[in-house]
């Protein structure tokens, strides 16, 4: 089982304009105050970092950093078969 959480937290850091403490329960919309475009650009960054495809269809269900990490872990496992 891979664990993407730490890496995602690191990737968030440069975009964390509010300087909030990022944990698995942090939300993108409320805690980080990211708009939908920022979220989609960040998805692209994670895709390149983990070499996976994160379909935009998943986004409505991904509100917290932890939920994103779980989704990314699953996508990595799926890729590695």
């Amino acid at each position: 089982m891979s664990n993407a959480l730490d890496e995602i937290v690191t990737l968030i850091a440069p975009h964390n304009r509010k300087g909030v403490a990022v944990t698995a329960s942090s939300t993108f919309a409320t805690d980080l105050e990211w708009d939908s475009l920022t979220v989609m650009d960040f998805v692209a960054e994670m895709e390149d970092h983990f070499d996976i495809i994160i379909p935009l269809n998943l986004l409505p269900d991904l509100e917290t950093v932890g939920q994103v990490a779980d989704a990314v872990n699953q996508l990595i496992e799926k890729k590695n078969g």
Binding site: M40, A44, I53, P55, L56, N57
Partner: peptide, 13 residues
């Protein structure tokens, strides 16, 4: 249109 479609949606730069 993507939202209304049942397809998988991917975005490129």
């Amino acid at each position: 249109a993507c939202k209304m479609s049942d397809a998988t949606i991917v975005r490129f730069k």
